[in-house]
Simulated scan of single mutants.
Amino acid sequence: MRHRLPYTINLSMLLTELPLVERPAAARRLGFDAVEFWWPFATAVPADAEVEAFVRSVRDAGVRLTGLNFFAGDLPGGDRGLVSWPARAAEFRDGVDVAVAIGERLGCRAFNALYGNRADGVAPAAQDETAVANLTLAAEAVARVGGVALLEPLSGAPAYPLRTAADAVAVIDRVAAAAGGPHPLLLADLYHLAVNGEDPAGMIAAHADRVGHVQIADAPGRGAPGTGRLDLDGALVALENAGYTGRVGLEYQPAGPSADSLDWLPRERRAADHVG
């Protein structure tokens, strides 16, 4: 590995053999000092006891929460976010309040907002208008705790309209123009972008200054780095050279036990204090 960017492990994709509240401690035992999650609850507004258990699991493990998705609906059922879903705007906004409260307690400063699929019977323009309003609210809410909202292109979801970095940046620019204040940054998942035909070098040259977070998996297959054909290290070097200093989220599907799927990453490179 030529790049020197620090990592964070996505515990909604890795270590899922364990109950959710046991994963942060397991990540710490594997040498990581930072973790990220998709929304870790089944509803936008979970019970207080669920929130407390989650917060306690991260604190007690001695890891930092570096990323959290806003509530995105029923992901196994095909939902891909509520940002552009007019009928569920109130639900999304309620979930933002919960996410910000968790972020304030755990020091999380990056919050991913999945845009949402195109909905039957709703004009795309109406969805996009809802998205601008919701992203403005979310960006302003997380800014109050020193955070940033993120917007992510996805693959594998035909009804999801953001497929390239340019698609997401166009929405980000709309929010910036409409609000004149805090606005989202790009979550560049190098797997999703590559599967959608995006050239990493071109994306970095055009949009590196808009990148707020990076996630990786190899392609094809969405497996660990080295299991596919992507030059992930080269892309990360290019991002680092372009000024990106954030973490790299490990968001891939392990083949077998999660711990074994981390063999490609030396233990001394798993925590930020070992980078340099």
Results as ranks from 00 to 15, higher is better:
Ala26Leu: 05
Gly249Tyr: 03
Arg144Met: 04
Leu265Lys: 10
Gly78Met: 10
Leu190Glu: 06
His213Gln: 12
Asp263Val: 15
Val98Lys: 11
Ala259Val: 14
Val214His: 10
Asp33Ala: 12
Ala166Lys: 07
Ala177Thr: 03
Thr136Ser: 15
Arg163Lys: 15
Glu240Met: 12
Leu150Tyr: 01
Ala141Met: 09
Leu135Asp: 12
Ala53Asn: 12
Arg93Asp: 12
Leu82Phe: 11
Gly246Thr: 09
Leu236His: 01
Phe92Arg: 05
Val45Phe: 04
Gly234Val: 01
Val96Tyr: 04
Gly116Tyr: 00
Pro6Arg: 00
Glu152Arg: 11
Gly212Ile: 03
Asn69Met: 04
Arg270Cys: 13
Trp264Lys: 13
Leu150Gln: 11
Phe54Val: 02
Arg144Trp: 00
Ala194Asp: 09
Gln215Trp: 01
Leu135His: 11
Trp39Cys: 09
Ala72Thr: 06
Leu135Met: 13
Val98Ser: 12
Pro24Glu: 08
Phe111Val: 09
Glu198Ile: 02
Tyr244Asn: 12
Asn112Arg: 00
Asn112Met: 02
Ala205Arg: 15
Arg59Pro: 06
Glu129Lys: 10
Ser57Thr: 01
Pro6Leu: 01
Arg93Gly: 04
Phe32His: 03
Glu152Asn: 08
Leu11Ala: 03
Ala217Asp: 02
Gly116Val: 03
Val132Tyr: 06
Leu14Glu: 00
Ala206Ile: 03
Ala166Met: 04
Leu20Asn: 10
Asp167Leu: 10
Gly223Leu: 07
Pro161Ala: 14
Ala99Gly: 06
Trp264Thr: 04
Val171Thr: 13
Arg64Glu: 14
Asn241Tyr: 03
Asp233Arg: 08
Gly73Asn: 09
Asp173Phe: 01
His3Trp: 02
Leu236Ser: 10
Ala149Glu: 07
Ala49Gln: 12
Ser258Asn: 08
Glu129Gln: 14
Gly81Asn: 06
Ala126Leu: 07
Pro182Asp: 01
Ala238Leu: 06
Leu230Trp: 00
Glu22Arg: 15
Leu250Tyr: 05
Glu52Ile: 00
Arg109Lys: 09
Asp233Val: 09
Ala119His: 13
Ala179Pro: 05
Asn112Ile: 01
Asp94Gly: 14
Ala177Arg: 14
Ala235Asp: 00
Leu82Glu: 10
Leu185Arg: 15
Gly73Asp: 10
His274Glu: 14
Arg229Ala: 15
Asn196Pro: 02
Ala159Arg: 15
Asp167Arg: 13
Ala255Tyr: 00
Ala206Val: 03
Phe70Asp: 01
Pro46Ala: 11
Ala271Thr: 08
Ala87Pro: 08
Ala170Pro: 01
Arg267Thr: 13
Leu135Trp: 11
Asp263Ala: 15
Ala238Ile: 02
Glu268Cys: 08
Pro124Leu: 07
Pro257Arg: 13
Asp33Lys: 02
